[in-house]
Design a protein around this nucleic acid. Structure first.
Length: 140
DNA sequence: GCCAACGTTGGC
DNA sequence: GCCAACGTTGGC
């Protein structure tokens, strides 16, 4: 099982909305590196839900419930873009801010920090554990 | 609002 | 194939 981080601007799609829908397809990814990460996701993989721009914090956990398929919002053919379906697991008990992530030496290598523009980032097992501990949350 | 980082486009 | 111009993301 792998771990990932999904970014969303709360103005466009917030954690609040995610919990209302409970399950949703993660569409709109238009970056090849991010797309390749989507393609690598397996069912049951856990994703950290991050609010970019506003909040700048990880606020919840979702899991992959359907592996990649063509992005239905794309009309051109061939369609190079894909989505996965994700489902809410739970909110973090305590959100973890970007500031905290940056301040933690164990997370110096975090993809979110090193490559700030990538909207679907891999998270290493050890990094995930550290972040989860910071959030005072357990996965299930 | 600004700017750094980075991706994409198009002229040559 | 190089690189300048331009667009986008996202932190500050």
């Amino acid at each position: 099982m792998a771990y990932w981080l999904l970014k969303s601007e709360p103005d466009a799609f917030s954690w609040q909305e995610m919990t209302t829908r409970h399950r949703d397809c993660w569409d709109g990814i238009r970056n090849y590196q991010a797309r390749n990460n989507l393609k690598a996701m397996q069912r049951k993989d856990v994703c950290l839900f991050y609010h970019s721009n506003i909040g700048k914090e990880i606020v919840g956990l979702v899991q992959v419930v359907k592996t990649y398929y063509p992005d239905p919002t794309v009309v051109e053919t061939p369609n190079p873009w894909v989505v996965v379906d994700v489902e809410v697991i739970k909110p973090l008990r305590v959100p973890v801010t970007l500031e905290q992530l940056k301040a933690n030496p164990l997370l110096a290598d975090l993809s979110l920090i090193k490559q700030s523009r990538l909207s679907v980032c891999p998270v290493k097992d050890a990094e995930f554990e550290v972040i989860l501990r910071m959030s005072q949350t357990t996965v299930r």
